[in-house]
């Protein structure tokens, strides 16, 4: 029984990670479609802030 739970667990780790990744990416995609980012460079162009 332990072996079966283990085997399911190993696969579940990858499955859960894939689902989480896709959920995050899908949320980003929806947000972009609703309101595209206004700022030309977003967080880039930070060279001005170099310490």
């Amino acid at each position: 029984m332990g072996e079966i739970i283990y085997a399911l667990g190993i696969g579940a780790l990858l499955v859960a990670t894939g689902i989480t990744m896709n959920a995050v990416l899908w949320r980003e995609e929806k947000r972009i479609r609703k309101e595209p980012p206004a700022d030309e460079d977003g967080a880039s162009g930070k060279r001005k802030d170099r310490v």
């Binding site: 980003e28 995609e29 972009i32 479609r33 595209p36 980012p37 700022d39 030309e40 460079d41 977003g42 967080a43 880039s44």
Partner: peptide, 9 residues
């Protein structure tokens, strides 16, 4: 903030 260059659905 997401950079515009990355915002391609």
């Amino acid at each position: 903030q997401l950079p515009r260059s990355e915002a391609d659905p």
